[in-house]
Amino acid sequence: MGKLKVATCSLAGCFGCHMSLLDIDEKLFDLLELVELDRSPLTDIKHCGPCEIGLVEGGVCNAENVHVLKEFRSNCRTLVAVGACAITGGIPAMRNNIDLWDCFQEVYHYGIGLEGGQIPNDRELPLPFDKVRPLNEVVRIDHFLPGCPPSAEAIWKFLTDLAAGREPRLDYEMLHYD
């Protein structure tokens, strides 16, 4: 049997969930017996091909996030929202009730140490949404792996369940939102 193809990415997140994935430590060797990584910050592959599993960290805060998320959705058979930001919008979503204009002003005009700041308008910069959204409000999500970040054990349990074709299930001790 071939290895499962897995892709990962971080949208509006802090890469903390990816760090937690690395925290699986020596089990990473076991994991790599089971899976082969496609697009991921760990491989630096820029676009994802057909995969069994996509792990997405972070919520959707800008136009580029939408492109990446849609690429994952159309290439991954099973798409997993990983971590608080992917599931609820998380910390980035705490700006949802601050007017975007005020956010820009604070960041580019009035922030400490700023003088004569300008709001950048380069085409390469993705435009931010008026609100940060959890993944499931933008595309269909198959599974949710909560935690900030989810613990290494939770990630291991989840992935091995998925790899074995089981419905992934976290019991009470592994289920955290923080």
């Binding site: 136009a63 709001i119 950048p120 308008n121 435009l127 949404f129 008026d130 609100k131 409000e137 269909r140």
Partner: peptide, 29 residues
């Protein structure tokens, strides 16, 4: 047939377009 967002993705960029004065193709979804 597939799930669609309840909100309009392009509309959600409108505020940012106004602030940055951008209207290029990357400024739209």
């Amino acid at each position: 047939l597939e799930f669609e967002p309840a909100f309009d993705l392009d509309d959600a960029l409108e505020t940012a377009r106004l602030i940055t004065g951008r209207d290029d193709e990357w400024a739209h979804l």
